[in-house]
């Protein structure tokens, strides 16, 4: 495959995907919750831009809607909600140093290579570069998962969850020029509801056990340790 054969717009898709992957790594290493939310919003912005480009390339008008939706939801609404949430939870100044940060980063890089290896057998796609984009979106999904494993703060875990969804969305846009609009609307709604529900849950969890550190939640098990 030769990059030079593709047009500038197609090349920019690669750049955007690569940047989105980079932002996933930034999310993974970022200590401050507020910065994490900003980064998450930027990732959403890249996604919206990418969707718009795919829409322009493939002449899929419904993708413009989904780009707009992504922009509204992931760049404006959810980050705003999360900001409000951490303000009310008084977590604005919260910082969490990752334990063994270098190790987590190495694991992240290994996951990227792994997802590439996983998609390599897919050969009957008409264009190899789509498969490569899919491999990176798979990596974004896994990095989101890794974030949830590595972080102890519940709000950070929610951001991890949301960025997983970003990866899935990216794969859908790149591979099949987006899902049917109905499905997309449904997922968008799901994410929104999830964000609201998470918020509600956090208040309850904190009210009843006075912490949002998931390592502390192990005490909830039946056996007394």
């Amino acid at each position: 495959m030769n990059l030079a054969q593709l047009g500038l717009l197609e090349q920019s898709i690669f750049v955007l995907v690569a940047l989105a992957l980079f932002l996933s790594f930034v999310l993974l290493s970022q200590a401050r919750l507020t910065t994490m939310i900003h980064v998450f919003a930027w990732q959403g912005f890249l996604l919206a831009l990418l969707t718009a480009i795919v829409a322009a390339l493939g002449d899929n008008p419904h993708l413009y809607i989904s780009a707009l939706l992504t922009f509204l939801l992931k760049v404006l609404l959810i980050p705003a909600m999360l900001h409000r949430l951490i303000r009310r939870l008084e977590l604005e100044r919260h910082q969490e140093r990752l334990q063994k940060q270098a190790l987590v980063m190495m694991a992240g890089a290994a996951l990227v290579i792994f997802s590439y290896w996983v998609v390599l057998p897919i050969t009957h796609m008409e264009l190899a570069h789509i498969r490569n984009v899919v491999s990176l979106s798979l990596a974004i999904v896994q990095l989101g998962m890794l974030l949830m494993v590595a972080r102890r703060q519940v709000v950070a875990q929610v951001i991890g969850f949301m960025s997983m969804e970003n990866g899935l969305f990216l794969a859908a846009v790149a591979a099949t020029a987006g899902m049917p609009l109905v499905v997309e609307l449904g997922i968008a709604f799901d994410v929104l509801v999830a964000a609201v529900l998470f918020g509600v849950f956090f208040f309850h969890i904190r009210d009843s056990i006075d912490t949002l550190d998931v390592d502390q939640l192990t005490r909830l098990s039946e056996e007394e340790r």
Partner: peptide, 8 residues
């Protein structure tokens, strides 16, 4: 990204 996106 060179290996995966540009030459993959």
């Amino acid at each position: 990204s060179h290996v995966i996106l540009e030459v993959g």
